[in-house]
Design a protein around this nucleic acid. Structure first.
Lengths: 216, 216, 216, 216
DNA sequence: AATGAATGAGCATTCATTCAT
DNA sequence: TATGAATGAATGCTCATTCAT
């Protein structure tokens, strides 16, 4: 009776975009399918034509969410600069969050963590997606570290994977503190500290000079 | 005048303990008041004799939750050891989480973050409590840093508060990654990296000694 | 675009009718949404598709209730008869209540009064509706009185508005006594008394003269 | 263990007085046993030592309620004045309600009517009490009417019982309208109208003048 | 395909009543 | 007697999901 040719993927995207917007505003729990449908400009029932249930929307929305969170790391990665500079520039990117109008999207991260871990034992793809994301993120940092280790910018006795995990953890963790208590934490200042401290931690001792000065 | 005598505080505690247990298992959203009552071995209505509503239980449970999370930092703090050693020992404590049977309680942290931030605009005491906790935690670390800076163990050009925030953030952040993806992250290994990297980042350049030995 | 087509107003009416029936049987307090849904032959949740909450159902039901209570005054009003005759005929209508199978609906009036006054301080529309009804009712009677005053059927020294309020009050009040204690009050008899007493009260003095002037 | 000698009746009264106060403030439905106990300055459980259940409190409270409503009719009744004057003075008493600080107690009447009629089919004593009250009230008025009929103050062709019912109904009914819509009804003015209209309705025809003009 | 009307499982919360002390 | 802690039945309301159109 009612037929229409539709780009299914386009519409799915539209719903997801709407969902993320609502999720950011109210969190998963307080966002209803109705909210999402309305935000997407479609009928409530239509949502179920594209997603099995609310959980699936949440799961799918993670990748969409990451697009909002994504900093333009790519550009930095392909630039011809030293590993150390790459690292520094990427870290600097995070200070930008300071200038976002609201931290709604960042706060949504809490919901994803919570939801993801709850799906731990289910077939749920969310945790898998989240971990895929974290793993690839770690890899990016690890690659830089490895590169730096290779050209002597960084110490040789470090484990690139864990340094990567640590850097990401540091950023996540400081973001948590900042989002929860903006009065207590100045994000830029915090990231400056992270940058310089971690760099000192992975840069070779006294660089070449000291080695030269004090050869064995 | 002659009524059943009950240690209200003791009972409140019992309910809270039961609540935390249920929350850890199922998260806030999926834990019903009935669950809590049953876990506490009391009637549903009784819960409301001790708490206004579910939200209040959640709020109160944070402090209870922290007791579970609390590592025995106190002992380390009062021990007569160097700032550096204190720092190292405290960080080592976190590796213990590895040996906890389940990470249910740690995962609950996600719910607290999520719930706390949702109360952002309400009079809700949860966010306040969480921030109080984080602030005092930062202070503990900052005090150690300051001490270390005073006795020359640590560099003088660092900001103790942000170093503290960074350490805590690092631990939180790495815990997140570990909890989400235990296969990818070995907690002990990660903490070793954090420990050594941050220490290198805040320890003074080995310059002092070399300078002495080789003054200009 | 292609959705179930429902006459929302028709359905709202159906729910209201069911609600009124339940209310009449059990009163507001003891009527549950479930009762109403069941009586309307729909699901509990459906009720909430049409009404915000129970209070709204009560408020809306007043107008519906009045339809049950409404006597066919209109017909009398448009008939070409004297003011006095109109008044008498309208009062006679009330004797009809005698022949209603049950007084459940009349008794419901008590609930409306009680509920309406409780909404006194809220934005609640019930009291407003009730007062609107009473005001318009008074106006109807007042108009008749004024007409009768104009053509000399009624005394000139009476206040039509208060006479109207008195007549309505009389009817309400006698109904209360009758409903509460049918053994003690014979409605028809009571209304006869009201009719003749009030008429004597508002008819001009000296009926005797007219009899003399226009003897049969 | 806990013994105390108590005047049971005195305490029952205290509870009833407290109950009526709470009922007037919030109505039956919204008044909890807790409220009553607190207002009476006793424990919740103690209430049940004196009353079977909430319904019984309501039932018993009617007589208490009437005490608040009672106007000092007695004084007027025993005064040596004419029947007509008695009637007028009693009616005037009702104008006093105007000066009561609040109409909470009057509004409670709605609850009693509603509750009373609901007990219609139960053994409930409330309806019985209410009817007893109304019957005795009618009797008081009827007695005055009869007296007036006897001494020629009032017409002989009236039914004292129904005139009494009508007067009381009039007062009840006008009070309802006034309580619901004080802006629309001026109680004193309304009672003036009632007084003069009913009096004209029951006073013998044509007063002295017509008699003088057309003596038999 | 699209829709939104219909639904009922599920939950937080209230409160009259009981009963151990 | 007096009490208030304990209780669970009862209820209003929400919302994910279904399905007739």
């Amino acid at each position: 009776m009612c037929a229409k040719v539709v780009d299914k993927e386009e519409k799915k995207d539209r719903i997801l975009k709407a969902a993320i917007g609502e999720f950011a505003k109210k969190g998963f729990a307080k966002t209803t399918i109705s909210d999402i449908a309305q935000a997407a400009g479609i009928g409530k029932g239509t949502v179920y034509e594209y997603f099995e249930n609310k959980e699936e929307i949440i799961n799918y929305s993670f990748n969409y969410f990451m697009r909002f969170m994504q900093f333009d790391i790519e550009t930095i990665l392909i630039t011809e600069i030293s590993a150390r500079e790459k690292l520094e520039q990427i870290l600097d990117l995070f200070s930008d969050m300071n200038n976002w109008g609201s931290t709604d999207f960042i706060e949504l991260m809490f919901d994803f963590w919570s939801e993801g871990i709850k799906n731990k034992n289910s077939r749920g793809g969310l945790l898998k997606d989240m971990n895929k994301f974290y793993r690839s993120y770690r890899e990016i940092f690890a690659d830089i570290i490895v590169k730096g280790m290779g050209d002597g910018s960084f110490r040789k006795d470090i484990n690139p994977g864990y340094i990567a995990a640590m850097i990401i953890g540091c950023l996540d963790g400081i973001t948590v503190q900042w989002v929860l208590d903006k009065e207590a934490i100045d994000l830029s200042e915090a990231i400056k500290t992270i940058k310089s401290t971690i760099l000192k931690g992975i840069l070779p001792n006294q660089t070449g000079r000291s080695v030269k000065r004090r050869p064995k």
